[in-house]
Lab assay of single mutants.
Amino acid sequence: KFNKELSVAGREIVTLPNLNDPQKKAFIFSLWDDPSQSANLLAEAKKLNDAQAPK
């Protein structure tokens, strides 16, 4: 279960257009550290992506 959630969340995070590479890497490392938090980490990444969207 975690492997699928981890890969789905990881793929989504790397495609978020408004995150820079260090931010993406930080989220990916957090996913590896605790795969059970993949849904929460993906939600946080999406929030940050939205907040950094060009206005």
Score class of each variant (00 low, 15 high):
Lys1Gly: 12
Lys1Met: 14
Lys1Thr: 11
Lys1Pro: 12
Phe2Ile: 11
Phe2Asp: 07
Phe2Trp: 14
Phe2Asn: 08
Phe2Ala: 06
Phe2Pro: 08
Asn3Tyr: 14
Asn3Arg: 09
Asn3Trp: 15
Asn3Val: 12
Asn3Gln: 11
Lys4Glu: 13
Lys4Ser: 12
Lys4Phe: 10
Lys4Cys: 15
Lys4Tyr: 13
Glu5His: 09
Glu5Trp: 13
Glu5Thr: 10
Glu5Phe: 11
Glu5Gln: 10
Glu5Leu: 12
Glu5Tyr: 11
Leu6Ile: 10
Leu6Gln: 06
Leu6Phe: 07
Leu6Thr: 07
Leu6Tyr: 05
Ser7Arg: 10
Ser7Thr: 13
Ser7His: 12
Ser7Phe: 15
Ser7Pro: 06
Ser7Gly: 09
Ser7Gln: 13
Ser7Met: 14
Val8Pro: 11
Val8His: 11
Val8Met: 12
Val8Asp: 14
Val8Ile: 13
Ala9His: 07
Ala9Asn: 04
Ala9Ile: 15
Gly10Thr: 15
Gly10His: 15
Gly10Phe: 15
Arg11Gly: 05
Arg11Gln: 10
Arg11Trp: 15
Arg11Asp: 06
Arg11Lys: 09
Arg11Asn: 07
Glu12Thr: 09
Glu12Asp: 06
Glu12Ile: 14
Glu12Asn: 05
Glu12Gly: 04
Glu12Pro: 01
Ile13Trp: 00
Ile13Arg: 00
Ile13Pro: 01
Ile13Cys: 04
Val14Gln: 12
Val14Phe: 13
Val14Ser: 12
Thr15Glu: 14
Leu16Trp: 03
Leu16Ile: 02
Leu16Tyr: 05
Leu16His: 03
Leu16Asp: 01
Leu16Asn: 01
Pro17Met: 07
Pro17Gln: 07
Pro17Glu: 06
Pro17Ile: 06
Pro17Arg: 08
Pro17Asn: 05
Pro17Gly: 05
Asn18Phe: 15
Asn18Leu: 01
Asn18Asp: 01
Leu19Trp: 01
Leu19Asn: 00
Leu19Glu: 00
Leu19Asp: 01
Leu19Arg: 00
Asn20Val: 04
Asn20Met: 06
Asn20Trp: 06
Asn20Cys: 09
Asn20Leu: 10
Asn20Arg: 09
Asn20Pro: 03
Asp21Leu: 11
Asp21Lys: 09
Asp21Met: 11
Asp21Ala: 10
Asp21His: 07
Pro22Leu: 14
Pro22Met: 15
Pro22Asp: 15
Pro22Phe: 15
Pro22Glu: 15
Pro22Lys: 15
Gln23Asp: 03
Gln23Ile: 05
Gln23Tyr: 03
Lys24Arg: 07
Lys24Asn: 02
Lys24Pro: 00
Lys24Thr: 02
Lys24His: 01
Lys24Glu: 00
Lys24Ser: 01
Lys25Glu: 12
Lys25Val: 11
Lys25Trp: 15
Lys25Tyr: 14
Lys25Asn: 10
Lys25Ser: 10
Lys25Gly: 05
Lys25Thr: 10
Ala26Leu: 09
Ala26Gly: 08
Ala26Ser: 08
Ala26Phe: 14
Ala26Val: 05
Phe27Asp: 01
Phe27His: 00
Phe27Leu: 05
Phe27Pro: 00
Phe27Arg: 00
Phe27Tyr: 07
Phe27Trp: 00
Ile28Arg: 00
Ile28Asn: 01
Ile28Val: 05
Ile28Pro: 00
Ile28Phe: 03
Ile28Lys: 01
Ile28Thr: 02
Phe29Leu: 12
Phe29Met: 12
Phe29Tyr: 10
Phe29Asn: 06
Phe29Arg: 11
Ser30His: 11
Ser30Cys: 14
Leu31Phe: 02
Leu31Arg: 00
Leu31Gln: 01
Leu31Ile: 08
Leu31Asp: 00
Leu31Pro: 00
Trp32Gln: 07
Trp32Asp: 05
Asp33Arg: 12
Asp33Tyr: 10
Asp33Cys: 15
Asp33Gly: 09
Asp33Glu: 13
Asp34Phe: 05
Asp34Arg: 03
Pro35Asp: 04
Pro35Trp: 04
Pro35Phe: 04
Pro35Val: 04
Pro35Gly: 03
Ser36Arg: 07
Ser36Leu: 06
Ser36Cys: 07
Ser36Gly: 09
Ser36Lys: 09
Ser36Trp: 04
Gln37Thr: 05
Gln37Val: 04
Gln37Cys: 08
Gln37Glu: 09
Gln37Lys: 09
Ser38Val: 15
Ser38Glu: 13
Ser38Lys: 07
Ser38Cys: 14
Ser38Ala: 14
Ser38Tyr: 14
Ala39Ile: 08
Ala39Met: 11
Ala39Asn: 08
Ala39Asp: 10
Ala39Lys: 09
Ala39Arg: 06
Asn40Leu: 14
Asn40Lys: 13
Asn40Tyr: 13
Asn40Thr: 14
Asn40His: 12
Asn40Val: 13
Asn40Arg: 14
Asn40Phe: 13
Asn40Ser: 11
Leu41Phe: 04
Leu41Lys: 03
Leu41Glu: 00
Leu41Ala: 03
Leu41Trp: 03
Leu42Asp: 01
Leu42Pro: 00
Ala43Val: 08
Ala43Phe: 08
Ala43Gln: 10
Ala43Glu: 09
Ala43Thr: 08
Ala43Ile: 10
Ala43Asn: 08
Glu44Trp: 11
Glu44Ala: 12
Glu44Pro: 00
Ala45Gly: 02
Ala45Ile: 02
Ala45Tyr: 03
Ala45Cys: 04
Lys46Thr: 05
Lys46Ala: 04
Lys46Glu: 03
Lys47His: 07
Lys47Cys: 11
Lys47Trp: 08
Lys47Met: 09
Leu48Ala: 03
Leu48Met: 07
Leu48Ser: 02
Leu48His: 02
Asn49Val: 00
Asp50Met: 10
Asp50Pro: 01
Asp50Phe: 08
Asp50Trp: 07
Asp50Ala: 12
Ala51Ser: 11
Ala51Asp: 09
Gln52Met: 07
Gln52Trp: 02
Gln52Pro: 02
Ala53Ile: 06
Ala53Ser: 10
Ala53Thr: 08
Ala53Phe: 05
Pro54His: 09
Pro54Thr: 08
Pro54Trp: 06
Pro54Phe: 07
Lys55Arg: 11
Lys55Cys: 13
Lys55Val: 13
Lys55Ala: 11
Lys55Ser: 11
